[in-house]
Design a protein around this nucleic acid. Structure first.
Length: 222
DNA sequence: ACCCAGGGTCATA
DNA sequence: TATGACCATGGG
């Protein structure tokens, strides 16, 4: 099974996902920070609170008090840390000329800039690069590692950069990488949510071996 | 009642 | 480099 075959199975089963759910690149970036180790449903509540407070802009987020901001984003968890991270990020965003100026940077430079922000690690930076700046960067998360190590395509123990290079190298010849990487990461997340609790068994499973493994794990048989 | 969610930072060895 | 502690709400 090759990475592109896994993708085709997932795509055939779930269809296009059309990520990222947001109305602007800036909103994508806020969401990327808010969703760190957090269910997306709770991020939606936080973003709705920001909209209700007319605080969905870098200026308003910086001008809002830490306490007020923390209260708005409370449903997304880690609200004190994330309040700090959002203001930190917004300061960086304005200092670098917002989306228009940032988007003129090449992908490697932009990635380094993003990683300099306190509160933005490799996965969050890659979410931003792929879904806000539409650069051909493959996002690695815990679901990706789990799925592909169970399919025995990667070890699951390698570092973030090594895992990312594996996918970008193996999909390097594909046309339209931005669209492919966009849908691929979304499909991996959707598949994980679909099978971990809701439907651990299904005979139409796009990667049936993985389904069986999850089922055994949940029952303590593996 | 327990487990985990679309992670990252910091202190320590 | 590599663990461990910490952050915290909400749904299954």
């Amino acid at each position: 099974m090759t990475p592109i075959q896994v993708y085709e199975h997932l795509y055939d089963y779930y269809g296009p996902q059309g990520w990222w759910p947001a109305n602007s690149p800036f909103e994508v970036m806020l969401g990327a920070i808010l969703t760190q180790n957090t269910a997306w449903i709770n991020v939606e509540k936080a973003i709705n609170n920001l909209k209700g407070g007319n605080a969905l802009s870098p200026d308003s987020i910086i001008n809002t008090s830490h306490e007020q901001l923390a209260e708005w984003i409370r449903p997304s968890g880690y609200f004190n840390i994330k309040s700090e991270r959002l203001q930190n990020f917004c300061r960086w965003y304005l200092d670098h000329g917002k989306f228009e100026a940032l988007n003129k940077l090449d992908t490697v430079s932009l990635r380094h800039r993003l990683l300099e922000i306190n509160g933005v690690g490799p996965e969050t930076a890659d979410d931003m690069l792929l879904y806000a700046f539409e650069r051909p960067i493959f996002v690695i998360d815990a679901y990706t590692r789990r799925l592909f190590s169970r399919l025995q395509l990667i070890s699951g123990e390698e570092g973030y950069e090594s895992a990312r290079q594996y996918f970008e190298h193996n999909l390097s010849k594909h046309e339209g990488k931005v669209t492919l990487f966009n849908e691929y990461h979304a499909l991996i997340v959707v598949h994980a949510k679909d099978h971990c609790r809701k439907r651990p068994i299904c005979n139409k499973c796009p990667v049936y071996d993985e389904c069986k493994y999850v089922t055994k794990m949940n029952r303590g048989l593996a």
